[in-house]
Every structure is written in C-alpha cells, then in structure tokens.
Nucleic acid binder design. Structure first.
Lengths: 204, 204
DNA sequence: TAATATATGGACCGGCGGTCAAGTTTGTCT
DNA sequence: AGACAAACTTGACCGCCGGTCCATATATTA
C-alpha cells in the first residue's frame, strides 16, 4: 500500500499552485520564473522542482486543476455538452466551453506554451499534454461522427490549437471571447455542413 | 543620401543567414543558439546582434527572404493566386501556397515562435511580424469580400495561426502537407459557404 | 523516544540572450 | 599615397534562467 503524501508536502503543493496562479494573473509568462514562484510561495526553489519535476510540470498541474470540471461535464453531464445531443451540437457546445475556460486561463495557456518551448529537453510536444490529448480526442471524435469524410484529426487540431495561438490568446485576454467562440462555431458548422451556413450564429 | 552597406558587412550578413538556415535544417530550434549561428558563420556573437538586433530579428529576416516570392505572386502574379480570380478561389490558392512555404520552412517557423517567446522584452506580439500582418490582411480581406457577415479578422487568425501551432507544424515536417492544405481548404470553403461542402476537395 | 522515510532549500551548474568598450577594416577625400 | 572618420567586429562580461544535488530538517511510525 502506498504511503500518503506528507502533510507539509501537501501544504506546500497548494501554496506553490496558488502563488503561481496569482503571479500568472498579474504578470506575463516570461516574467514568472520558477524561482519567483518559489519565493512567492515561501518555499525553496528545489521544492518546486521536487514536487512538479519541471516548469512544464507545474503549468500542466495548474491546467489539470481547471480542466477537471469541464472533463466531468463532458463525460457525464447533461446535453448538449454531455452525451445525448447530436454531434454537431455537442461540438459547438464543447468549443464554447473550451473558449470560456481558455478565457479564464489565458495567461496560464501562454505560460504553458512558453514553458514547453523553453524547456531543456526538446522532446516535449504538445501531444505529451494529457489535457490537450483528451480534448482533441473528443473534438475529432465528434467531427468524425458528423462527417466521416473529413480529416477529423487535423480539423480538431486546427480548432483547438487556435486557442494556443498568440493573436487569439490576446483577444481572449482582452475580453473578446464571444467573437472567438462565434468564429470557431462558424468554422465548425461550416465544416460539418450546417444548413443555412454560418450566418445565423455568427452575427450574434 | 544614405551610405551603402559596407562590403564586409554584406558578406557577413549573408554568411550569418546561410549558417542559420543550415543549422535550422538539421537541428531543433532550441539547439540553435545565436552563439552557435555566429560560430558556424565564422563571425563573433556581437556581430549577429549588431546586424539583426536580436534573435527574433534574425529569424524574421530569414522568414522575410522566403516570403518575398510569395508576396510578389500575390500582388502581381497570375490568378488564382494573383488578382483576377474570385475571392474564394484566391483564398484557397493562397492557403495552399502558404502551406507549401510553411512546409519548406517548418523548422524556421518553430524557431521564430521559439525566439518570440523567449525574448527578453515581453512586448513582442506576433502582430509585430510584418509578414504575418501582411498575410493576415490578405486572408481576411478575401474572407470579408466573399462573406461580409463573418468575422473575417478572426477567421483569418484561425486559418493562418494554425501553421504556427505545434501539432500542425510537426505534421508539415513529417511530409503531411497535403492533408493540412486539404483541411484548411475544407474549413475555408465551409466558412465561405461553398456549394457542395468540403467533400469534393477534402477527399483527395 | 528512536528509527526511518520523506521533504526541504539554496548554493551551484551550464547555457542563454543581450551589451559594450576597445580594436580593426573600409570607403572617401585631398 | 596617406590620413581620417565612420562603420564594423569582437569576445569577455552581465544577469537570469531551468534544473541538480545533498546536507539538513521534519513528519510519521513503532
């Protein structure tokens, strides 16, 4: 049987995550070094690396926290997000939800991207991020279900990857998330061959 | 009247660009430091910074070189890339061309992204990259022309920004550019309300 | 309380992008 | 040709980064 995490360790883990969250809320990612996070959390730099392995690991842990609720809503929540609705509606609902989450976490997403690109070992692709993988699986499954003839895997990357992109990310940060959600919806509906085209929803 | 660039300076500039190009062809971006480029070019590190200002500046210069021919084809070349064809066809042709260029420059694009995110001054958004700006202007103008009701600016960012994204970029590197071009075409046609939907072109 | 597994912290490492003052080369003018 | 100024080159140097290491401190268990 596994030993539980020690109490002080758990306390520090929470302190580190909270400090990182706050720093990312108020500073651009490249100004939030691991050392600063450690300082703000009141722990040593080594402790952060011991807990999270690397800068990337820390960012991924933060993202996991936030993604958890969305994950649950998708697998067992009510339609249109959860099972039961037609694929096209589920896809649009999911994109809306992801955009909403990305809006709340704009700085974090940028920081994660920043960390991924600056890490020492070059092998870390985005496909090593379990959250991205699970979201992409969901999106491409929905696309494939509605349109078996399109390249669902790739279209999924386009729709999701966009949120990691700098122009979009800064738009989210500026409060324009409605536009982003609308445009992603237009693209998704267009791809899935919605009757009436993107006009109806895009104008809102 | 402006003085011309000195002969030795011009020689060094070309040596630096050539060395950077070669290194990026054979190594992942995070292994190509400015110092290594300088070493490979047979010049001092300070010279690189003197010529190009920063790592980002160097990468942008490389991209500018490659983008030049495409730029010309767009403004004065024959249709469907150049003026004369309907917006929808010009858009698809342009996306094809951009994908082709991105395929040839996959390492460079990644390196530019890498440089952008690791630079000291945090102010450098992608919108400071003149090539991206001009391409985006072109794409969104075409979208707006064909579909005044959609958010052309944003849709343009989605279609173009995708190429800077890691899953797509690695696919390009792996020789799957046809899939990428097809999917972008599907999305573009879907958004623009192509009769018949994405089926026709996406299946190839 | 004694023993043991676990957690801690900060000095340390190699390497990065970027700076700069001092030295060298080039083009120009007489 | 010679002399002069402007342009160019250079590499030691700076501050900082992500990551490592291990002597020390602490929580847990018996």
């Amino acid at each position: 049987m596994e030993r539980r995490e020690r109490a002080d360790a758990a306390r520090n883990r929470r302190a580190i995550l909270a400090a990182a969250e706050e720093l990312l809320r108020e500073h651009p990612p490249e100004e939030v070094s691991v050392e600063r996070v450690a300082l703000a959390a009141g722990v040593g730099k080594g402790t952060v690396f011991h807990r999270f392995g690397s800068r990337v690991g820390l960012m991924q842990e933060l993202m996991s926290e936030r993604a958890h609720t969305l994950e649950q809503a998708v697998v067992e929540g009510p339609p249109p997000l959860g099972p039961g609705a037609p694929a096209r509606e589920r896809l649009v609902a999911f994109l809306d939800a992801v955009v909403a989450m990305a809006t709340r976490s704009a700085g974090l997403i940028a920081a994660h991207e920043h960390a991924r690109l600056t890490q020492k070992a070059g092998g870390g692709t985005r496909l090593a991020n379990p959250i991205y993988v699970s979201w992409h699986r969901h999106v491409s499954a929905l696309i494939a279900e509605a349109r078996p003839d399109v390249d669902a895997e790739l279209a999924g990357h386009v729709l999701l990857g966009t949120l990691h992109t700098e122009p979009i990310s800064s738009l989210l940060h500026a409060g324009e998330s409605a536009r982003v959600a609308a445009t992603l919806g237009d693209l998704a509906r267009g791809l899935l061959g919605d009757a009436g085209g993107p006009l109806k929803a895009g104008g809102g």
